[in-house]
Design a protein around this nucleic acid. Structure first.
Lengths: 154, 154
DNA sequence: ATCCATTTATTTGATATTTAATTATTGTCA
DNA sequence: TGACAATAATTAAATATCAAATAAATGGAT
């Protein structure tokens, strides 16, 4: 924790920056969620499918850590995806406590066009920024994110 | 909608930027929410109190527009705040359908230290960025936010 | 080898949020 | 004026999420 005095001017700048950052994030999130609604899945479900596509089958626990979701919530998310036939549960030979979650063929073929559409929305959302601006925004965001996660360990 | 072809490289950059932006936002949001928990109110309740402090008494509908919350949800949020004696409902002489929500004295005195603590957390979260970086981040975020809201009208 | 703390998934109960339907009021237009 | 559409708050029903408690399996220390 820094000990130097933080003046009101800085506080105002930070508050202002936070409001803008949060508003941008929410606006984009809203666009993306609306798009997912049109495809009949939730953002959380999409997140699960995407990570399975990217990393292959994973234990339920691991998925929760990756997308920052409580395992109790994840159980129902996986339940719902399983009902739709997009994933299934399998035994984990390495540990009988754990459940491996796998993307089905239907899951894969369903995800593909949704991901494409998701990407299009995202490109549209960010079209107002040029390449340099994107890089700067990414770096500043990364700094912020890392700052929090380092705090979490203390 | 732009018609020019968006190459894979740009798509990757945008996806990457979004992930970082979203992660930063969520991390900070998590810190702030945790802080509010310690004060016994939710972020949404805090948002309502703050806007009432800032703009004075407002119709329920207007509050919902400001903090992007459905009015049905707002009803229960106001209910809960009213139970805690932090706000109360009053008639709106101008329109008998509408309900004016007012911050009570208890609401004001309760909000003050919470807001202070909130600000401290925020300063801590953003302490990794210097003044110039804060300004750049704010401007880029603002551009993004405005881009969405302009789209919403189309 | 056994006891015990830890880990994993699940169930249960609570809260937050949204959409749809309801009620009361307002405004409009024919 | 009177019928009807629009608006504001509310209620009801559904979903998402989390925290706490539970059950099964694992690993480690003695």
């Amino acid at each position: 924790m820094s000990t130097h005095y933080v003046g009101t001017e800085t506080e105002t700048l930070i508050l202002d920056t936070w409001i803008k950052l949060n508003r941008a994030n929410n606006s984009i999130g809203h666009v993306l969620r609306h798009n997912m609604d049109g495809h009949g899945i939730t953002m959380t479900q999409f997140g699960v499918l995407e990570i399975l596509e990217h990393l292959g089958s994973l234990p339920l626990k691991t998925i929760g850590e990756k997308i920052l979701l409580s395992s109790s919530n994840l159980v129902t998310v996986i339940d719902n995806l399983e009902k739709q036939g997009l994933v299934n549960r399998q035994n984990n030979p390495a540990d009988r406590r754990s459940v491996m979650v796998c993307l089905t063929d239907k899951g894969k073929s369903t995800l593909k066009p949704i991901f494409q559409s998701h990407l299009e929305q995202l490109v549209e959302c960010f079209s107002i920024l040029n390449e340099d601006e994107l890089k700067v925004l990414g770096e500043l965001s990364k700094k912020l994110g890392l700052n929090q996660s380092s705090k979490a360990k203390e």
